[in-house]
Design a protein around this nucleic acid. Structure first.
Length: 618
DNA sequence: ACCTGCCGCGCC
DNA sequence: AAAGGGCGCGGCAGGT
C-alpha cells in the first residue's frame, strides 16, 4: 500500500510525498493541489493528511475524488482512547504531538440480493488488508488514561488562511512522523487487526462526510412549501404566526379559560394548565397525552405545528436549501460512540413529514436502504449468540423472537430488546428482559458485563476497539462522597443511581458503537462499489476528458447523498438504479462478513427505489 | 445585548 | 401504551 503524505511546505505551498520514495516528492502552490492529487491518485495511494475536513473539500470543489485516506485527527483520537493501546501508550515512547488537532473540526423495488459469488469476487473496500474480526469483545480497560474532554478544535477558515499564508502548521515532516507514530501505536496494540479496520473505516467515513456535503441531498422547495401550507396555512408575514396555529391557540385558550396564555412558554403554559385543573408536572407531550381535557387535543396539535415551523419552516428553507440541495455539515465520529453528528440544519432529525421534499432530479432516482434492527443483530454477532442470531434470520428480528417462543407478541419482543440494550429496569420493558436473558444468555451477558464495568467507572470498547470515555466528574464525586464514613443513606442512593446511569451508557455504548462500525463498513464498501459502477458507465460513455472528470464525481455518477446511523440514500441515474441497489445489498453482506466472519448473523435491508424519500418506508 | 441552562421534541 | 441509550436545535428563562 503506497501512502502519500500531505503537508505544508511554507509560502503557502503543499508537499505531497511518498516517504518511501522521497525523491519523487511534489511541492505545489495550494491552487495546484487538486491537480497534483488527481495525477497521483492513479497510483491508488492512501492519502495521509491531518484532517479530511480541512483538505478534502477543496479537492471535491475541483472535481477530484480520492479512493482512501488516513485521517490523522480522527484516527489519533481513536488510538488515544482505545483500551487496546493502553500498554503501548503507557510505555511513553509515542507521545501525541501538540499540533495534531483533537476534537471535531469545523468545515466549512429493490433489486435482488447479489449472489455470494459476486461478493467473493468483488473486493470490499480494502478487504485484502483485513481478516474478519473474529473475537467478540467488550474489552475491559484500565481507568486512568486521557479523558475525552472536548478540545476547542481548529477553525477551518484560519486553517485555510494559514495554509495560504504559508504558516508552519503541519509541515510535511511532522505529518509523516505523526502517521508513523500512529502506525506504531497500531502495531503495538492488543488488537491491531480490528483497530486497523476501524481506522480505515473511520477515514473512509471522513471522505464520505465531505462528499455528502459536496453532493447535497436533492430537495424540492415547492414540495416542502406545499407541506408547510397544508399543515400551517399560508406563509405568514414576518412576526406573525401561521393561521392554523392561531386557530389552535385560540381553542386552547378558550378551553383553559386563559385568554392571554403564551403557549410557547413552558412556565406560562404549565401555570395555565394547573389553574384549569390539569395536574401535570411538565408540558411534555407524553404527560399531556394522559390527560382528559378539551384543551389537550388542540394543544398537542399546536405543539406539533410549532415544532414544524421552528425546526423546518420557511426560515429553515431559506437558510438551508440552495440550488435544490440540502447541504448539512456532517461530523464523522462526532459522538462518543462513533456515530456521526451533524452541525446545522438538523440533518439527523429530518421529520418524516418533510421527507416528501427529498426528490430525485429528473431522470434520476433514489435508492433508499436501512438496516433492519441493526443493533440487536450486531449484539448477537458480538456475543456470538447462536440462538439470537437464529431469531434474526429473516427480515423481522422481532417476529423471529416471537416464533422462538421467547415472548408472545412482536411488540413485546421489541420492548424486551430495547430494554436489554438500554438497561431498562422498570415497566413492561424491564419485566420482559429476564425472559430475553433466559433465551439469549450470551448476548445478555455481554451487555450486562458492559454495564457492570461502567458502574465501577471502567472503560468498555466496541467490536473494533473504540473505547468509552471515562465517567463524568459527577460519578467520581458521588462515589467518593458515598465512601466517606459519614456518608448518609441519601449519599449512597445517589452514588448507586449515578453509577447505574453510567452503566446504562456503557451498556449501550458497546452496541451502538459497534453498530456504527457496521454502518461505516457498509457505507465504505458501498462507496467503492459506486465508484466502480461510475467508472464502468464512464467507460461506456467514452474517454474521460478533464472537463468531464469533475462530472464523474457527482454529475453523472450514482453517489451517496444521505446517511442516518443505519440508513443511506444514493442518488442515481435511473438506468443504474438496479446496479446500485445490488451494490447496496452486496455491501451490507460484505460488512457483516468483515465484522463477524462466518458467524451466521444476517443484516437484511429494507430497500426501496423511489423518486421521493417519503415513499421509502411506505 | 449577549450567554448559558433547561425543556421539549425531532431522528436513530 | 410501555421509559432506558445517543444526538441537535429552537425557544424561553434567568443570569450578566
Amino acid at each position: 500500500m503506497v501512502r502519500i503524505v500531505v503537508g505544508m511546505a511554507g509560502q503557502g505551498r503543499v508537499t505531497l510525498i511518498d516517504p518511501e520514495a522521497a525523491a519523487e516528492a511534489v511541492t505545489v502552490p495550494l491552487a495546484g493541489f487538486p491537480d497534483a492529487v488527481r495525477r497521483l491518485e492513479a497510483r491508488r495511494p492512501r492519502w495521509v493528511w491531518s484532517d479530511t475536513r480541512s483538505w478534502y473539500p477543496r479537492l471535491l470543489e475541483a472535481g477530484v475524488r480520492v479512493e482512501r485516506c488516513h485521517d490523522l485527527r480522527l484516527c489519533g483520537a481513536i488510538l488515544e482512547h482505545s483500551a487496546a493501546t493502553v500498554t503501548v501508550r503507557d510505555a511513553g515512547e509515542h507521545p501525541r504531538p501538540a499540533w495534531l488537532p483533537v476534537g471535531p473540526s469545523e468545515p466549512g423495488a429493490a433489486a435482488a440480493v447479489a449472489a455470494s459469488s459476486v461478493i467473493a469476487r468483488t473486493p470490499l473496500f480494502e478487504l485484502d488488508e483485513f481478516d474478519a474480526v473474529s473475537d467478540s469483545v467488550a474489552t475491559v480497560g484500565t481507568p486512568g488514561f486521557i479523558d475525552a474532554a472536548a478540545d476547542p478544535g481548529i477553525d477551518p477558515i484560519d486553517r485555510a488562511d494559514d495554509a495560504v499564508a504559508g504558516s508552519s502548521a503541519e509541515p510535511v515532516a511532522a505529518v509523516i512522523a505523526e502517521h508513523d507514530r500512529q502506525l506504531a501505536l497500531l502495531a503495538g496494540s492488543a488488537e491491531p487487526n480490528a483497530l486497523r479496520l476501524l481506522l480505515a473505516a473511520e477515514s473512509a467515513g471522513a471522505l464520505i462526510g465531505a462528499e455528502l456535503h459536496a453532493a447535497g441531498l436533492p430537495w424540492d422547495r415547492a414540495v416542502h412549501e406545499r407541506v408547510l401550507e397544508d399543515e400551517l396555512g399560508p406563509k405568514p408575514k414576518t412576526g406573525w404566526k401561521p393561521a392554523r396555529m392561531e386557530e389552535l391557540a385560540a381553542q386552547v385558550r378558550t378551553a383553559l379559560d386563559a385568554a392571554s396564555v403564551n403557549l410557547d412558554s413552558q412556565a406560562d403554559l404549565l401555570r395555565a394548565l394547573r389553574r384549569a385543573g390539569i395536574l401535570v408536572d411538565s408540558t411534555s407531550r407524553w404527560e399531556l397525552r394522559e390527560q382528559d381535557h378539551p384543551a389537550i387535543e388542540p394543544l398537542l396539535a399546536y405543539k406539533k405545528l410549532a415544532r414544524l415551523l421552528s425546526a423546518n419552516g420557511w426560515a429553515w428553507l431559506d437558510e438551508w436549501i440552495a440550488g435544490g440541495r440540502f447541504r448539512p455539515d456532517y461530523v464523522p465520529g462526532g459522538t462518543a460512540t462513533g456515530r456521526w453528528a451533524t452541525s446545522g440544519g438538523g440533518a439527523l432529525q429530518l421529520p418524516k413529514i418533510v421527507r416528501s421534499a427529498v426528490v430525485a432530479d429528473p431522470g434520476w432516482t433514489l435508492v433508499v436502504a436501512d438496516a433492519a434492527q441493526l443493533e440487536p443483530r450486531v449484539l448477537a454477532g458480538m456475543a456470538r449468540d447462536e440462538a439470537m442470531a437464529a431469531a434474526g434470520r429473516g427480515l423481522d428480528f422481532y417476529r423471529g423472537i416471537v416464533d422462538a417462543g421467547v415472548v408472545e407478541t412482536r411488540e413485546q419482543a421489541k420492548y424486551a430488546i430495547l430494554g436489554a440494550m438500554y438497561g431498562a429496569t422498570t415497566g413492561e420493558s424491564g419485566r420482559l428482559v429476564p425472559r430475553l436473558a433466559r433465551a439469549y444468555p450470551r448476548a445478555m451477558a455481554l451487555v450486562d458485563r458492559a454495564a457492570a464495568e461502567g458502574e465501577r467507572g471502567g472503560v468498555v470498547s466496541t467490536l473494533l476497539g473504540r473505547s468509552s470515555p471515562l465517567p463524568p466528574s459527577e460519578w467520581h464525586a458521588a462515589q467518593s462522597r458515598a465512601s466517606q464514613p459519614e456518608a448518609s443513606p441519601a449519599d449512597e442512593r445517589r452514588a448507586r443511581s449515578v453509577a447505574r446511569e453510567w452503566g446504562r451508557f456503557t451498556r449501550n455504548f458497546v452496541v451502538q458503537g459497534s453498530a456504527a462500525e457496521w454502518a461505516l463498513c457498509w457505507m465504505a464498501a458501498l462507496r467503492t462499489r459506486l465508484a466502480a459502477i461510475a467508472a464502468a458507465g464512464a467507460e461506456a460513455a467514452g474517454p474521460i476528458t478533464p472537463a468531464s472528470a469533475s462530472g464523474l464525481v457527482f454529475e453523472r455518477a450514482p453517489h451517496l447523498v444521505y446517511f442516518l446511523h443505519d440508513e443511506i440514500i444514493v442518488h442515481t441515474p435511473q438506468a443504474l438504479a438496479a446496479d446500485v441497489a445490488a451494490a447496496v445489498e452486496e455491501a451490507a453482506i460484505g460488512a457483516g462478513r468483515l465484522l463477524f466472519g462466518d458467524f451466521p448473523v444476517e443484516f437484511p435491508l429494507d430497500l426501496a427505489v423511489v423518486d421521493s424519500y417519503a415513499l421509502a418506508d411506505a
